[in-house]
Design a binder for these strands. Structure first.
Length: 436
DNA sequence: CGTTTTTGACCTGCGC
DNA sequence: GCGCAGGTCAAAAACG
């Protein structure tokens, strides 16, 4: 059985978590965890010279890695700060929008609103439907003749769900603009968790990492609730939901890439409705900041973008991949890009602000409007540096991901997710990479 | 015995 | 309307 398999993820920072050591030494300590050993025994002069040479080489390598790790740690810290700042900015803007939308629209805001009238009308239609019905979509299910408690409200909610479905079909584009506009066009007094959940859940953050571990360690507790074979990929997709709090809407999908099975694709959806342990906060803020940017960016329709003043960190200019298979707006944090030969999606400021190269996958109809920009080489240096570090060692990707979540050094809440999408081709042995 | 995983059934959206 | 694919549910099994 799968669950018997002992899964250990690479974690260069685990000593810090258990020992509570000084932050500044962590990155530098990482290479020492390779447990390089020296042995004293009598050897001849020539042999000794050779081993001295080897020793020197290893020491050089060690200091190089230490330096590199110091640099990476600095970047992780910077990025964490940036994310917090961006998150604050997002919530400020969000709050402001909510406030302004609950009042009669005047001035420039009103003009902006007018510009977007057709979209807003559509969004309103959806929005009201959403607010009338909870997200649960199948109140009338007749599952295996079982009596269901949910049947009590079934007729009512079923018709509401149907309204939602019907209304949704009026969209000329999918979830992206709906999400964004409903955010900005909030109807007062109808605040509803279901709608909020739906809104949050529709933006997705996809993390691609070269990892032979079955899951990337993000500090949260997950419970597997399904597994499915997806078309075009021999590896099954596993579905997890956050179990750190009852009713937390956050879900994630884990699947290996069909092109390269060493790449683990983890897609996060939703925002946690509970406090996170520090170990989870970094990853969560990464994903939520990305999602927030995506949502706030999508709220700025391409036609009105230059007039709005608020430029979400320029991902509006991102080259996006055309992905008919991505019905939801998705940001991909790509930990697998080569250090040079930058991908087109990296050509933006947000990519530079992110620790990882990333790409956005937007619904196709939006993509037509997205202009490409020239890459800012200064800003690319961060991306280049970090990607070169990542690609230097394939296993390091997993470690780096783990590092992000562990950098704040919380005692780890055990990641109980042992379920793994089957991937017989991938040996698990690598995950035991000298961590004790 | 409580929790988690497995897995087949079911629901929904979408394209034809 | 039908079929397909993605996503979710929940009973049963496995586990600790």
């Amino acid at each position: 059985m799968e669950r018997h398999r002992e899964i250990k993820e690479v974690d260069f920072f685990s000593e810090r978590r258990t020992g509570g050591g000084d932050d500044s030494t962590i990155a530098g300590d990482a290479p020492t965890r390779l447990h390089l050993r020296t042995v004293n025994y009598e050897i001849g002069g020539e042999e000794r010279a050779r081993s001295d040479l080897q020793l020197t080489t290893l020491q050089d390598e060690l200091s190089r890695l230490s330096e590199e790790n110091r640099r990476l740690k600095g970047m992780v810290e910077k990025v964490t700060k940036d994310y917090s700042a961006l998150k604050c900015q997002f919530f400020l803007v969000k709050q402001q929008n909510t406030k302004e939308n609950s009042q009669p629209k005047i001035g420039s805001l009103h003009e902006d609103f007018e510009d977007r009238k057709p979209l807003v009308a559509q969004a309103r239609m959806i929005h009201s439907s959403v607010h009338r019905g909870k997200r649960r979509r199948r109140p009338l299910r007749r599952r295996r003749q079982r009596p269901s408690p949910s049947l009590t409200n079934s007729a009512d909610t079923a018709s509401k769900g149907h309204q939602l479905t019907a209304a949704k079909r009026h969209l000329s584009f999918d979830g992206l603009s709906y999400d964004a506009l409903s955010e900005n066009d909030k109807i007062p007094n109808v605040a509803n968790d279901g709608a909020a959940e739906m809104r949050c859940r529709r933006a997705r953050v996809c993390v691609r990492a070269v990892s032979e571990a079955p899951l990337i360690s993000d500090g949260c507790q997950w419970r597997k609730y399904g597994q499915k074979m997806a078309k075009g990929n021999p590896c099954p997709r596993a579905y997890y939901r956050c179990t750190m709090a009852a009713g937390c809407p956050v879900r994630k999908q884990v699947q290996r890439s069909s092109e390269d099975r060493t790449i683990l694709v983890t897609t996060y959806e939703g925002s946690h409705n509970h406090p996170l342990p520090p170990a989870a906060a970094a990853m969560a803020s990464t994903t939520s900041a990305a999602a927030a940017m995506l949502l706030s960016g999508s709220s700025t329709s391409s036609e009105t973008l230059p007039a709005t003043g608020f430029y979400p960190p320029s991902y509006a200019t991102t080259m996006a991949t055309l992905s008919p298979a991505a019905p939801f707006p998705t940001i991909t944090l790509d930990l697998t890009q080569p250090p040079n030969g930058l991908m087109p999606f990296q050509h933006n400021r947000m990519a530079a602000a992110m620790p990882f190269p990333f790409q956005m996958s937007l619904p196709q109809k939006r993509l037509e409007f997205l202009p490409a920009v020239q890459f800012d080489h200064q800003q690319s240096s961060i991306v280049e540096t970090i990607t070169s570090a990542i690609t230097a060692d394939p296993n390091f990707t997993a470690s780096l991901t783990a590092a992000i979540s562990s950098i704040v050094a919380a005692p780890r809440i055990a990641n109980s997710s042992k379920g793994v999408p089957e991937s017989p081709q991938i040996p698990q042995s690598c995950t035991t990479f000298s961590t004790n």
